[in-house]
């Protein structure tokens, strides 16, 4: 837990200073909402060891439902967030009940199939606005008191939520619950033989992860005033996998670093525009996925554990060598 407070402190310091470094609060908030999404994904896939390709459904539906509630009924911000989380949790429970007994590729495929069903539902359903999406979503008032329409106040609220997500998830993975999840991931038959109902543990983790993803979705809807089909699309599930693998799956800070990297690359590459190499001219803005794909491959080949994962194992190795030295 001491590490968690260190990480939380670090993010608070960097986060509090970031808007004054010339970075747009809106850009940073988008990063942070996606970081929470990645944290949610990492909590399940990183600690249970099952790959979900359905998380976009929780995120996207959280965005729609949270956004719809605040736009149509004018609920306060925290209620909209709670609605997003509930949406994620209910959907997660449905997905989980159908998929959690499957392993490996079968689990991944079932979550993907269910998420695609949700996607097509969103294309057809009247309240989502189909191709246009749900637009002009207000940010509302926090507890009905604090107006968040100002970018900077929304920014600090988002930062608070990010830190809260990290602390809560780190608490859960170090608590007995998380220890059991690690045990199940390590050796499932042994966990069964010790009397653990492993399916219920996995299902609980999946629902918690889906709830946080839904919350992240509704936060994003309020930050950008928009909830749309790209949020529910399977490529969004792909993006979150990418973020966690780049940053480091199963690490506390990995999802955050990964999310920032992916958003940064997307926006930076898009703004570079046309690059001329001799007679060859490349329009990079249309080739963002290719460039990200190459970066992804290089990272996976060079840093298997992701960026944070590699740094962590370097530090661990250093500590172990020092401990061995002092022991001899």
């Amino acid at each position: 837990m001491r590490n968690t407070w260190l990480i939380a402190g670090l993010i608070v310091v960097i986060g509090a200073a970031a808007p004054f470094s010339g970075l747009y609060p809106l850009f940073l908030m988008k990063c942070m909402a996606l970081a929470i999404f990645a944290i949610a994904f990492n909590f399940f896939t990183g600690y249970v060891g099952l790959l979900s390709i359905g998380h976009a459904a929780f995120y996207g539906m959280g965005a729609y439902f949270g956004g719809y509630a605040i736009k149509t009924y004018g609920v306060s911000t925290e209620i909209a967030l709670l609605i997003g989380m509930m949406t994620g949790a209910v959907l997660g429970l449905l997905f989980g009940l159908l998929a959690i007994r499957r392993r490996g590729i079968y689990f991944a495929m079932i979550t993907l199939a269910l998420a695609q069903m949700v996607y097509f539902f969103c294309v057809q359903a009247p309240f989502t606005g189909a191709e246009d999406g749900l637009q002009r979503i207000p940010r509302g008032k926090l507890f009905g008191l604090i107006d968040l329409s100002n970018d900077l106040s929304m920014y600090y609220f988002t930062l608070l939520l990010l830190v809260l997500s990290i602390v809560v998830v780190q608490y859960l993975v170090t608590a007995p619950f998380g220890q059991v999840l690690k045990a199940i991931r390590d050796n499932e038959p042994r966990a069964v033989s010790l009397g653990y109902d492993v399916q219920r543990y996995k299902l609980t983790a999946f629902v918690l992860s889906a709830a946080l993803a839904g919350g992240a979705g509704s936060l994003k809807a309020m930050v950008l005033s928009l909830a749309g089909l790209p949020d529910v699309h399977w490529t969004n599930s792909g993006a979150v996998i990418l973020m966690c693998l780049l940053g480091g799956l199963g690490t506390a800070l990995g999802p955050v670093v990964g999310a920032v990297m992916v958003v940064l690359l997307e926006t930076e590459l898009a703004s570079i525009g046309v690059v001329k190499i001799g007679s060859l001219s490349l329009d990079l803005s249309t080739k963002v996925p290719i460039v990200i794909g190459v970066i992804f491959m290089v990272t996976v080949l060079l840093f298997r554990k992701g960026i944070v994962g590699e740094i962590q194992s370097l530090i661990d190795g250093y500590h172990r060598r020092r401990a061995e030295k002092s022991a001899t």
């Binding site: 859960l172 608590a175 007995p176 619950f177 220890q179 059991v180 690690k182 045990a183 991931r185 390590d186 050796n187 038959p189 042994r190 966990a191 033989s193 010790l194 009397g195 653990y196 109902d197 219920r200 543990y201 299902l203 609980t204 983790a205 918690l208």
Partner: peptide, 29 residues
């Protein structure tokens, strides 16, 4: 059959804590 990524003492804790934990109480410290 051990849990290779958990420490030896954590392995034993997983065994002794079983009757005191449940997934429904995931917030348990």
């Amino acid at each position: 059959a051990t849990f290779p990524h958990l420490s030896v003492i954590e392995n034993l804790k997983i065994a002794v804590q079983r009757p005191s934990v449940s997934p429904g109480r995931f917030w348990q410290s």
